[in-house]
């Protein structure tokens, strides 16, 4: 694997880590100045000129505060947070035979994206954490899979995945702004969106 691909994969992995619930295992490490330095150098290696998310190396949240911020920003199940789940931001299915009221609507779980991701995991013999069985298309999982594609898949596969699946971050940010999520998580989503946009161009070149 090329040096740049290793950098891309690990940035996707870092984002996946940060966009899943914070845990004692690695929270401090993820947000430490060391990680910030490392991320800075990886971005430089890639020639990707993005400002670091404030969460990494900047403003610090302790684990409890981070857990709270994460829950209220991205995981509250009651319409209070911007759930980072692809299906919610896409029409439920493109299959014209569906006669469910939500077929062409956005805002629901279990859409095409969700079913497709579940099928990908199954075909690749990947197991997802059981608490995500309702959302195989959770942003954290998608970023994780993207890292895996960078490490093991072709550039076409990466391109496809970015354009077909990781194209909804602008909508997520819109939802995040409508609900007023924690600024550090908003900032992180902006970074994720911009990095994905950069990588799409990068892959096209």
């Amino acid at each position: 694997m090329e040096r740049t691909d290793r950098a891309r994969a690990s940035i996707y992995n870092l984002l996946a880590e940060l966009l899943m619930p914070p845990t004692a295992e690695n929270w401090e490490e993820l947000t430490s100045p060391g990680t910030a330095e490392w991320l800075q150098s990886e971005l430089a290696e890639l020639g990707c000129n993005l400002p670091l998310p404030a969460m990494v190396g900047g403003e610090q949240l302790d684990l409890a505060a981070a857990g709270d911020a994460y829950y209220h920003s991205l995981a509250h199940p009651l319409g209070q947070s911007a759930l980072p789940i692809e299906s919610i931001y896409k029409p439920w299915t493109t299959d014209p035979s569906c006669e469910l009221s939500i077929a062409s609507e956005k805002g629901y779980l279990g859409g095409d994206a969700s079913a497709h991701l579940a099928d990908i995991y199954k075909a690749l013999d990947l197991a997802i954490p059981p608490e995500y069985s309702h959302a195989p298309d959770h942003l954290g999982l998608e970023l994780s899979l993207m890292a895996l594609l960078v490490e093991n898949g072709s550039r076409e596969q990466q391109s496809l995945f970015l354009s077909q699946h990781l194209d909804w971050l602008p909508d997520l940010l819109e939802a995040a702004d409508a609900r007023g999520i924690h600024s550090l998580y908003r900032d992180l989503l902006v970074f994720a969106r911009d990095f994905i946009a950069w990588d799409r161009v990068n892959l096209a070149e």
Partner: peptide
Amino acid sequence: KFTRRTFLKASAATGA
């Protein structure tokens, strides 16, 4: 650089 959890527990992804 950092400690990773593995959200996707892969066994044979590469070849597949």
